[in-house]
Simulated assay, not measured.
Amino acid sequence: MSVTTPLPSGESQAATPAALIDPFNRHVTYLRVSVTDRCDFRCVYCMSEHMSFLPRKDLLTLEELDRLCSAFISKGVRKLRITGGEPLVRKNIMSLFRALARHLETGRLEELTLTTNGSQLEKYAGDLKAAGVRRINVSIDTLDAQKFKAITRWGDLSAVLKGVDAARRAGISIKINAVALKGVNEDEIDDLLRFAHGNGHDLTLIETMPLGEIEGDRTDQYLPLSIVRARLLDRWTLEDIPFRTGGPARYVRVKETGGRLGFITPMTHNFCESCNRVRVTCTGTLYMCLGQEDAADLRAPLRASPDNGPLFEAIDAAIARKPKGHDFVIDRRRKQPALGRHMSVTGG
Rank of each mutant, 00 (worst) to 15 (best):
K79T: 14
R108T: 14
A101W: 01
V164R: 08
P55E: 09
L68Q: 10
I174C: 04
G84D: 06
V35L: 08
K123S: 07
F97V: 07
D165C: 06
E49M: 03
L68S: 09
E110F: 03
W154L: 14
F53S: 03
S52A: 14
G118R: 06
F97N: 05
A167M: 10
S34V: 00
G155L: 11
L31F: 07
K79M: 12
P87A: 11
I174L: 10
D144G: 00
F72I: 11
D58Y: 10
I151T: 02
L54P: 03
C43K: 05
R56P: 02
M47G: 04
E64K: 10
V133A: 06
E86Q: 09
G171K: 09
L100Q: 10
N137W: 10
N92K: 15
W154N: 14
I136D: 06
A167T: 12
L60D: 12
K123Q: 15
S74Q: 15
N92T: 05
V35N: 05
H103G: 01
W154S: 12
L128W: 08
L68D: 08
A145W: 01
S48W: 00
Y45S: 00
R168T: 14
R38Y: 02
A125R: 11
V133W: 09
L62T: 12
Q120R: 15
H50T: 14
K147Q: 15
T113S: 13
H103K: 03
T61P: 09
R90Y: 07
R32W: 03
G163Q: 11
L112D: 01
H103Y: 15
S95V: 14
S52N: 13
G85V: 06
A170M: 02
R67Y: 04
S173V: 13
D66V: 07
L54T: 08
P87S: 05
L88R: 07
G107A: 00
C46Y: 11
L60P: 12
A170V: 03
I93M: 06
A145L: 05
A99G: 15
A159Y: 03
R169P: 04
W154A: 13
E86H: 07
S48M: 11
L54C: 05
F72V: 12
D141W: 00
K149M: 04
T113P: 04
A101Q: 10
F53C: 02
C43G: 04
L157Q: 03
A170C: 04
Q120S: 13
V133C: 11
L109M: 04
R108N: 13
R81G: 03
E110Y: 04
L54S: 12
A145D: 14
K91L: 05
F53Y: 15
D127H: 12
F97R: 10
V77W: 07
G118N: 05
A150D: 11
C43T: 03
V164W: 05
S70F: 05
A170T: 05
D144A: 02
R102F: 01
Q146E: 15
V35W: 02
G85Q: 07
K75C: 15
R56C: 02
